[in-house]
Nucleic acid binder design. Structure first.
Length: 270
DNA sequence: ATGCACTCCTGAACGC
DNA sequence: TGCGTTCAGGAGTGCA
């Protein structure tokens, strides 16, 4: 389940391979992803040179010298495979450069590909409303406090809202809340100001540690070279229902919240 | 504006 | 063994 650290891992793996490379051929085997693969993808990318690979929230952006940017989202089960030795089911799109092949593989097809003029990438509907990057140097508790003002939703739901803060999914929302000692069901607007500072710090710390470890590979994530991320070993609460809280030893609890599991320590998180 | 259920999809895990 | 059910969840949609 690619969240910010997993996408960052993919982008970092992709950049040295794609930066400066020329796209030789694009092959689309399946167009019906989360949204249809743009019909002009092959035409606009073939022959273009890649000028950069970057990330915004959970999106990867590949810029070309033709003024187009390819945006990818990995959804739930998406992977980018670099120079795969065999073709697999669900290999939907293939990008051949002068030297490598990048394959977009996505069994559940919650992922998507988009092509936009580079100058308008930030205004694309999927990117336009995104909140601040939690790893941006300017990101702090104030940004979270502002997004939470007057809101009655559970803080976990607010963290998952990409307009409030970008790139967070269920795993890192749960982990950051544990680090900040905040109960996932607590109403966002009823959290005292200093606690947002702890939450912002918890988010940053857990995301940086996860990137360092190459992300969390629960089921679907892997770096472009197929390497698994090792951060699941460092998860304190996510997926650990019944296990001992690493801080106090109390059993980790799982609670259904808005249709999704929230994992937390009922003693440490209030 | 806000909150929330529903929807898409497939594979893994589970129960009988 | 084999079938059915449940779950995972990012993010748009549509409703109250």
């Amino acid at each position: 389940m690619p969240e910010l650290p997993e996408v960052e891992t993919v982008v970092r793996g992709l950049a040295p391979v794609l930066d400066g490379a020329a796209v030789r051929r694009v092959r689309v085997r399946r167009r019906d992803l989360r949204w249809p693969v743009p019909s002009g993808l092959e035409r606009h990318l073939s022959g273009a040179r890649i000028t950069g690979v970057r990330r915004r929230a959970k999106f990867g952006l590949i810029d070309t010298d033709r003024g187009h940017t390819l945006i990818f989202h990995l959804g739930m089960s998406g992977r980018l495979r670099l120079d795969p030795s065999e073709r697999l089911p669900h290999d939907h799109v293939e990008l051949e450069t002068d030297g490598h092949r990048i394959v977009f593989h996505d069994p559940r097809r919650f992922g998507s590909l988009h092509l936009v003029p580079t100058a308008e990438a930030a205004r694309h509907p999927l990117l336009a409303g995104l909140g601040p990057e939690p790893l941006d140097p300017d990101f702090d508790g104030e940004a979270l406090a502002q997004a939470a003002r007057g809101r009655r939703v559970a803080i976990r739901a607010l963290l998952l809202d990409q307009r409030a803060v970008a790139g967070i999914g269920n795993i890192y929302a749960c982990e950051a809340l544990f680090r900040a000692g905040i109960h996932p069901a607590r109403a966002a607007g009823r959290i005292a100001r200093p606690r947002f500072e702890r939450l912002a710090h918890g988010l940053r710390a857990v995301l940086e540690a996860a990137i360092e470890a190459g992300g969390t590979s629960l089921r679907d994530h892997a770096a472009v070279d197929g390497a698994l991320g090792w951060f699941q070993r460092a998860l304190a609460v996510y997926g650990r229902e019944g296990e001992a809280c690493p801080a106090c030893g109390h059993a980790i609890r799982r609670q259904r919240l808005h249709g999704r599991s929230a994992f937390f320590c009922p003693r440490c998180q209030r």
